[in-house]
Design a protein around this nucleic acid. Structure first.
Lengths: 356, 356
DNA sequence: CTGAAAGCGCTTACAG
DNA sequence: CTGAAAGCGCTTACAG
């Protein structure tokens, strides 16, 4: 096996010979900023073109100690939020002249092999979307000088940065919106319970509801999965004291909850039940769902993630920074409307609570 | 800029010194199949663990002339079919001990920079999903000994393999199903018109309809995009001779078409209009849509893609192979049912035309 | 089984 | 500006 021999590419020495110059000259031609005369460069370029030469990035990395590769670890790709993030990451990283090494799945446990591979390729930075990092692994990254940024999760660990929406505020705003809409029995369908994102959304929601005298809320666990959300919805909607307002921890689950409410329980949304989601992902805008939801500023979040990474790579100093970005409560038709507080802004309707 | 100095990782020489053995011994310890005694291996492993050593994959690649990196070029990530493919690809490639270098976007034109990067990293293989390859680029890959597999597209080019569903048969089957359902005015909403996938689906559909005496069909162009599909649907549904059956080139567009039909035209599906999609992607199974659709055997397609690649990498011989896999017509509620031909198979309903 | 040595394809001081 | 040379961290004949 492995009987095949991959033809080795054209090398700088071959180009040098063809052009009648030194190998160093070839290298300089392809190193931005290196000192080389226009004549020499032209000669080299001509030979390179004839031979179809392309510098070997692996050999270059070996000596520069920079791979220009960023590892991205991402799970939950069936939630369209993440493919959107991935596409935007791809766009920005390529613009910064970095490559994207993708690992699907989570880094939560038993994923030492993934981590191993990622370290073997000497990646210049790591982006972890929808997952966190054990303290051993994060220390190892810090020791190796590799910056890590969590996307849509946060952590207290040293040396691990994060970019999230203001989930606490988001949860609060959802509660205020539902309270203003005159709802009385509140429910919540959670994501992964231990995830920072879920914790913060729930904490904000709880806090604002408690302040208004609603200490009791019905909670189901959806684990950010469609099947989990369906099961949780069935359980909650079967209760005699069925909520009239349901905050679902993300849109991916909210879609499933709406399907169950309408097609299994025959409920009318928002007349019988109001639903609010989180993310403002594609399907939230589809007419069949038209979900009222807290938006996550995806473009800005991705931009910030790449910025943090680039800064730390350039400076060589790894300091945990936590960036929290605000979203808007996008008002659509899946939840009963409050009498006031709805503002139109360039074609979108958003909620701004009167007193704040 | 670039003021930072990334700490260089632990090297095999450092481990060798610590263990009191030669550097070769360290290398052998981490090379599967290399000849090394258990004692030596144990000594090396101990030292390696103490120092946190991990072989540098870049240095290894330089000498083995194998990067163990597969480039994946993928566009249309907002169509859930592709994230699903990506997740499956990630799973299989990791199992084969390959890494996945992701390039988002298409390779159709002006993407020489993407191609350049991919070649600079000396990838061992290339998977192009939802895009094709110019003849110059495909020749260059062949010359460099790099196997290329198109996923969900095909081409006549030498040295480029492909894996697709049997789109021609799929198109035919959709037509037969709709004919058997008693429909009379047929429409089609196309994807990218020049894509092989779209061409074949349409050809099969046309052929079977023509055979039944329906030479005229209304065609709109959706370009595999949601907005395009909406516009095409509006145009087609506004016609006085509005079709009563619409084949939409993929589910991603079919969802959009259903939204327009129901919420803009007030049509009832399937009473006023039957819709059939392609792919059998997640949303096709959501209750709000419940789309009758030709499935693409995603797992088998991905498996085949990886197999083709592994074979060609191992043998070193690049020969264009074209694998065509059959799907099923999944019967749900978005299209009127024929009187016969519907079969139940492990909980799913599929269409098997009576005579075939 | 083990080690010394050559070499993969580059970058980058160092001299000129 | 240019070239000769060292060296990045490995693998792999070659001898023993």
């Amino acid at each position: 096996m492995d009987g095949g021999v991959k033809k080795t590419g054209v090398t700088s020495s071959e180009v040098a010979k063809r052009a009648g110059v030194s190998q160093s000259a070839v290298s300089r031609t392809f190193t931005p900023g290196a000192s080389i005369s226009p004549t020499m460069r032209a000669k080299v370029m001509a030979a390179a073109r004839e031979l179809g030469y392309r510098p070997n990035a692996l050999a270059r990395s070996l000596i520069t100690n920079r791979s220009r590769i960023i590892a991205v670890v991402m799970a939950y790709l069936e939630n369209l939020f993440y493919p959107d993030v991935l596409e935007e990451l791809g766009r920005l990283l390529v613009r910064e002249n970095y490559r994207l090494l993708l690992f699907t799945g989570s880094l939560d446990r038993d994923s030492d092999p993934v981590f191993d591979q990622l370290m073997q390729y000497r990646v210049d930075g790591i982006i972890l979307a929808s997952t966190s990092l054990s303290s051993e692994l994060s220390e190892e990254c810090a020791a190796a000088g590799i910056p890590v940024v969590l996307f849509n999760r946060t952590t207290e660990r040293d040396a691990v940065s994060s970019v999230t929406a203001h989930n606490l505020e988001g949860g609060r705003l959802v509660a205020e919106f539902l309270l203003a809409g005159g709802h009385e029995r509140f429910g919540y369908i959670s994501g992964i319970e231990s995830s920072s994102t879920n914790r913060d959304r729930l904490a904000g929601y709880r806090e604002a509801l408690a302040r208004a005298g609603h200490a009791d809320i019905v909670i189901g666990t959806g684990n950010y999965e469609r099947a989990g959300a369906e099961a949780a919805a069935r359980e909650i909607l079967s209760r005699p004291d069925r909520p009239d307002a349901l905050f679902v921890a993300n849109d991916h689950m909210a879609v499933a909850v709406m399907d169950v409410a309408r097609y299994e329980f025959g409920l009318s949304i928002p007349d019988d039940l109001s639903i609010v989601g989180y993310d403002d992902v594609g399907p939230a805008r589809w007419s069949a769902y038209d979900i009222t939801t807290m938006s996550q500023p995806l473009e800005r979040m991705v931009e910030t993630t790449v910025e943090l990474l680039m800064e730390q790579i350039a400076s060589g100093r790894i300091v945990a920074e936590h960036r929290i970005l605000r979203g808007e409560l996008m008002v659509r038709s899946s939840a009963r409307l409050p009498a006031s507080g709805i503002v139109e802004a360039d074609g979108r309707r958003i909620y701004r609570p009167p007193q704040s």
